[in-house]
Simulated assay, not measured.
Amino acid sequence: MDYTTLALDPGFGSAIGRGIGAIALYAVVGLVLMVFGFYAIDWTTPGKLSILVRNGAPNAVIVTASGLVSMAFIVVVAILSAVGKLDEGLLTSLIYGIVGIVVQVAAVRLLEWVTRLDIGSIIESDKFAPASVVVAAAHVALGLVVAFAIY
């Protein structure tokens, strides 16, 4: 009868520990970037998005949600592009993430200016405005462009 022993490599536990630590650190960097991204959208968009979203303004919800999705694309690709040692990867993610968020917000504001959309009145309206979908699409599209520029 052939008996085989199932055993883990001696370094398995420490490798798992390092991996869990890396996940936690990247999660913190990702959270910091997402919060920064939210405030970047809020500061550069007319009106107070957080209040409008809390009050249920449909266009503010659409624009904010799409902005957060676009920020997530940028943060994920910034983390994905981070290679090397953990400290270098975290710093690279943070730098690329911040630059990507700034570029994305500036590009969306420029696109709104070029299209002459009055984003302030759109997001403050209690009635759904189809133009909010255009702004949302711009957020997502430009977020993807910036994310792939990072990669």
Rank of each mutant, 00 (worst) to 15 (best):
A40N: 04
A131D: 11
D118N: 15
A22P: 03
N59Y: 11
G97M: 01
G17S: 13
A137Y: 15
A57C: 15
V99P: 00
V103F: 04
M71K: 04
V146E: 07
I16E: 02
V103D: 02
S132M: 08
V28Y: 08
H139K: 05
G37Y: 10
I123T: 13
L111P: 00
A137S: 15
V99T: 04
N59A: 12
I98G: 00
F36K: 02
W113A: 03
I20Q: 07
S81T: 05
V75I: 12
I41P: 01
L86Y: 04
L68D: 10
G97T: 01
L90H: 01
D87C: 02
V102Y: 00
I23E: 06
A27T: 03
A131R: 07
K127A: 12
G30A: 13
K48M: 08
Y3K: 13
V114C: 01
G120T: 03
A22C: 06
S70I: 06
M71R: 02
I51W: 07
I74K: 04
E88S: 12
S66M: 11
G30H: 10
E112Q: 08
G19F: 08
L90S: 03
V61C: 14
L117R: 08
L142H: 14
L144W: 13
L49Y: 11
E124H: 09
A60K: 14
S125K: 06
F12W: 07
L8S: 06
G11T: 07
V135E: 09
T5P: 10
T45A: 04
D9R: 05
P130N: 12
V29P: 07
A106L: 02
F73V: 06
V146R: 06
F12Q: 00
D87A: 10
L8Q: 05
A141D: 09
A22M: 09
I79T: 07
E112T: 10
L144M: 15
P10A: 06
D118G: 11
L49C: 09
R18N: 03
S50W: 15
Y151Q: 14
Y151D: 11
F36G: 03
Y96I: 00
L8G: 05
V114G: 01
I79F: 03
G17W: 04
V133T: 11
G84T: 01
W113D: 00
V63Y: 05
I20R: 07
A27M: 00
H139G: 01
K127D: 12
T64A: 13
A72M: 11
I23N: 07
G30R: 10
G11D: 12
S93L: 00
G100N: 09
A107C: 08
K127L: 06
A65M: 09
I51M: 09
L8F: 11
I23L: 12
Y26F: 13
G100Q: 10
T64P: 08
M1V: 15
P58C: 11
I150Q: 14
L117E: 06
A82Q: 03
T5I: 15
M1T: 14
I62A: 14
